[in-house]
């Protein structure tokens, strides 16, 4: 049963792949824990079912300190292992690239996203009717997020990462993106049209990206590069 949740997407960023493989490790351990625990419960249900007509009391045992210490210790060790694995992955995923290939400023608003590019004057604004389509170069991209009104959350499912866009402060995610076209959404509920804040990010070569940056603004940008 638990295994059917294993279809986590692979991730189109190195950070996403990191998360995906962490997920798989968790899943294997979880499957083990589930099978052992559920197995013991199922065994008790089947094996220790009362026989009809048998009215004698079973043996009344109350405790066993050694056993109890053991079953405290084993999960304790297990969660320390899981914590350490996850802490290493967290470091990798959170690492900010010192020299990103592009820095994209993203502002969430009710209900759309505005993308601007450091020092180029390029600006793309999406609306529910016409969602934003923007380009980024393949490689290290930093998204610096904020909000013009309420809390939003910048979420690209294929990246396996989201980060909140909070009014009054900047948050940031750094990803190493593969070439491809990725759909994004708003993940933090932000009011009436929360479901209508999609956007599209296309990761292309640095040349194609630079060329796109130079293009004169023409309302909503063409997304095909």
């Amino acid at each position: 049963m638990v295994l059917t949740t294993s279809c986590a997407p692979q991730g189109s960023t190195s950070q996403g792949r990191e998360i995906s493989s962490l997920y798989d490790i968790f899943l294997w351990i979880a499957a083990g824990v589930f099978l052992v625990t559920a197995g013991l419960i199922a065994w008790s249900i089947i094996r220790y079912r009362a026989k009809p007509g048998d009215d004698d009391l079973p043996e009344q045992f109350h405790q066993n300190l050694k056993l109890e210490v053991t079953w405290f210790a084993i999960p304790q060790i297990l969660v320390v292992v899981l914590f350490v694995l996850s802490a290493f992955a967290l470091n990798e995923v959170n690492e900010e690239s010192p020299e990103p290939d592009a820095v994209v400023d993203v502002t969430g608003f009710q209900w759309g996203w505005r993308f601007t590019y450091d020092g180029s004057g390029k600006e793309v604004v999406g609306t529910p009717q016409e969602p934003a389509k923007v380009l980024v170069p393949v490689g290290n991209v930093s998204f610096v997020l904020t909000s013009a009104d309420v809390v939003h959350s910048f979420y690209v499912p294929d990246f396996l990462i989201k980060r909140d866009a909070v009014p009054g402060r900047d948050t940031r995610i750094d990803v190493n993106v593969d070439a491809g076209v990725y759909d994004g959404v708003c993940a933090e509920f932000c009011g009436l049209l929360h479901a209508r804040m999609p956007f599209t990010i296309e990761a292309v070569s640095q040349e194609a990206f630079q060329q796109w940056l130079q293009e004169p603004p023409e309302g909503v940008a063409r997304g095909d590069g």
Partner: peptide
């Protein structure tokens, strides 16, 4: 696990 939560939160 925060990295997994980044994906599924």
């Amino acid at each position: 696990s925060p990295p997994i939560d980044y994906a599924v939160h």
